[in-house]
């Protein structure tokens, strides 16, 4: 094959029929507020840690719904639990509890 200097990226499409959402369901059990997220992104905008780690509660919830565990775990590792996201959340979601709950349930626990 001739090296063109570029290649095709693998598809990033999420097939919702094949996604393993057990971890998300477990999260809903521990913090039901997660279901009320409207994805406004206030949490992402205020996040202390996002500048360095890309942490965003909105993306954590979205990532769990789509089964993107690796990305979610990388974000969760950056959280400093400062509570700014809780303060600004227009839905009043207890985001700190949500983050701690998500950190508690690893992929294996969700089974």
């Amino acid at each position: 094959m001739i090296p063109f200097g570029f290649s095709l990226s693998p598809s990033s499409v999420t097939d919702l029929d094949k996604v393993d959402t057990r971890r998300y369901r477990e999260l809903l059990r521990l913090e039901p507020g997660a279901a009320t997220c409207i994805g406004c992104g206030s949490c992402s905008a205020t996040c202390t840690s996002s500048a360095w780690t890309g942490m965003s509660v909105r993306k954590v919830i979205l990532g769990l719904q789509r089964g993107r565990d690796v990305e979610v775990d990388a974000m969760l590792r950056g959280c400093m639990l400062c509570g700014k996201c809780t303060m600004v959340c227009p839905r009043g979601i207890n985001t700190r509890n949500l983050i701690l709950a998500a950190m508690r349930i690893s992929k294996e626990d969700g089974k």
Partner: peptide
């Protein structure tokens, strides 16, 4: 309490 994920702030360089 034990957590499955532990924080890692190695990329944080203020």
């Amino acid at each position: 309490r034990r957590y499955a994920i532990d924080p890692d702030y190695s990329t944080v360089r203020p």
